[in-house]
Design a protein around this nucleic acid. Structure first.
Length: 121
DNA sequence: GCACTGACGCGGG
DNA sequence: TCCCGCGCCAGTG
């Protein structure tokens, strides 16, 4: 099970209407400090094309919007369609991670990873 | 092997 | 909260 396969498994478990950060994805894969690889993987479709990439944002909750989607507003549109409020700020479109974040604490993330390991993934 | 790149993260002020 | 600097690491040429 390599990094990209794990990523696919983790991404597939992101709940509808929630947002997660790159760093959390890496952590849930059991590989801390690999946030950049998560971004790389998504932008190059290394983790499969059916992952909910629009639910992945950076640590501040800012949408990448780096033309990685077909249209610049696609990520924002998809999130709003799921009931996630997206607010425009100086840095770009931002979601409230306090409200819509999937995992809020390190403990929750570690617990999730333990369950992941038990399944042999 | 080397240098550079990037959908990033974090601590300090 | 915002801004800044430094750290991080697989891919790529």
């Amino acid at each position: 099970m390599d990094f990209y396969q794990r990523m696919q498994q983790v991404c597939a478990r992101i709940p509808y209407g929630k947002a997660v950060t790159y760093g959390q994805i890496a952590l849930l894969c059991g590989l801390p400090n690999h946030a950049r690889q998560v971004g790389y993987a998504l932008s190059h479709d290394r983790a499969g094309k059916d992952v909910p990439a629009h639910r992945i944002v950076n640590a501040k909750g800012i949408l990448s919007g780096a033309m990685a989607f077909d249209t610049p507003d696609l990520q924002k549109t998809l999130l709003e369609k799921e009931g996630v409020a997206v607010k425009h700020t100086g840095e770009g479109w931002r979601v409230d991670l306090k409200k819509y974040g999937w995992k809020h604490t390190l403990e929750e993330a570690e617990e999730f990873y333990r369950l992941f390991q038990q399944k042999g993934i």
